[in-house]
Write a protein that binds this DNA or RNA. Structure first.
Lengths: 154, 154
DNA sequence: TAATGACAGTCCTTTTTGTAACTAACAACC
DNA sequence: GGTTGTTAGTTACAAAAAGGACTGTCATTA
């Protein structure tokens, strides 16, 4: 029963995650001045096409206040448009504009390239281990690919 | 060339890291009202015994301003003592007091238990994959176990 | 021993985040 | 059709993080 920081799961995860995130942030910050919530909303909307802020939050694992602020920022850039749902006027549908989609594509390419550059330093075996580890942890932590628990526990 | 958030390495890492960290934070926050920098300094000092703020920062991968504030907070609780190095009066040696070591031990147990509880949900194979993945990523990202680059690049 | 540059640690200012309260809209129930 | 409870999204406030500038100390060199 020994706790050494450098062997402690959360510490290691955090350091790795932060290192990777920082590389990415440099890209979307430098090119378009985006912060992470904004980038995530952009990516989420590219994934989801047309959806509400709540859905975007679920899909990108972000609190609704972050989403709200990010949506506002992206709207100001005219990268997305809102449209209140006539059926339920509380919620608004969000869609990327052409400019938004263009910005997303311009960002996706270098971000993926950077991801690939990191993974390229790993052996095939290590890459497999990474995939297996991430999937296993996601399951163990009840984090499904798009943010909802795998099946609702009673 | 497809960027889907749920398959994107930094996103997955971040979500996992955050989920695990949150579980831990609940423990050291609830029991002793610590925040992460404070907990990390405590753990680093438990690892290192007697060392300077700079060393603690390197060992726990934290910016010196965070370390500075955390040291102040822990000092106020009388969990650590400072001692300016007579050889170099810029730096101060930090050591945990008995109370500090006691608090550390009281925290280490439940934190390790929580870590174990998470890992217990994984198969042996998955656990191995996690270990292999973390090590491989640490290497690929030039993050050595205690925060210094593996060997200084020219 | 003055000048330059590096380093340890702190302080101060600006962003970002998290939390909780709030508004508006809906739904269910009586 | 009023009451109660829930949900979508925003706003306002408080806590935390990030970053840079600053102070004091040391080392090097002239």
């Amino acid at each position: 029963m020994e706790l050494t920081l450098s062997h402690f799961l959360p510490y290691r995860l955090n350091r790795i995650s932060e290192a990777v995130s920082n590389e990415m942030r440099a890209i979307y910050k430098q090119r378009h001045g985006l912060n992470r919530p904004e980038w995530r909303v952009l990516a989420a909307l590219a994934d989801l096409e047309r959806s509400t802020a709540t859905e975007v939050g679920a899909h990108s694992t972000q609190h609704k206040t972050k989403v709200s602020r990010a949506v506002f920022a992206l709207e100001k850039r005219r990268w997305l448009k809102r449209q209140t749902d006539p059926q339920d006027r509380r919620s608004e549908y969000l869609t990327l504009t052409d400019a938004g989609r263009k910005a997303y594509r311009e960002l996706a390419a270098p971000l993926l390239a950077r991801e690939e550059r990191i993974l390229a330093r790993l052996s095939d075996q290590d890459r497999n281990a990474v995939e297996q580890a991430l999937s296993a942890l996601e399951t163990a932590l009840d984090i499904t690919p798009d943010g909802a628990p795998p099946d609702a526990p009673a």
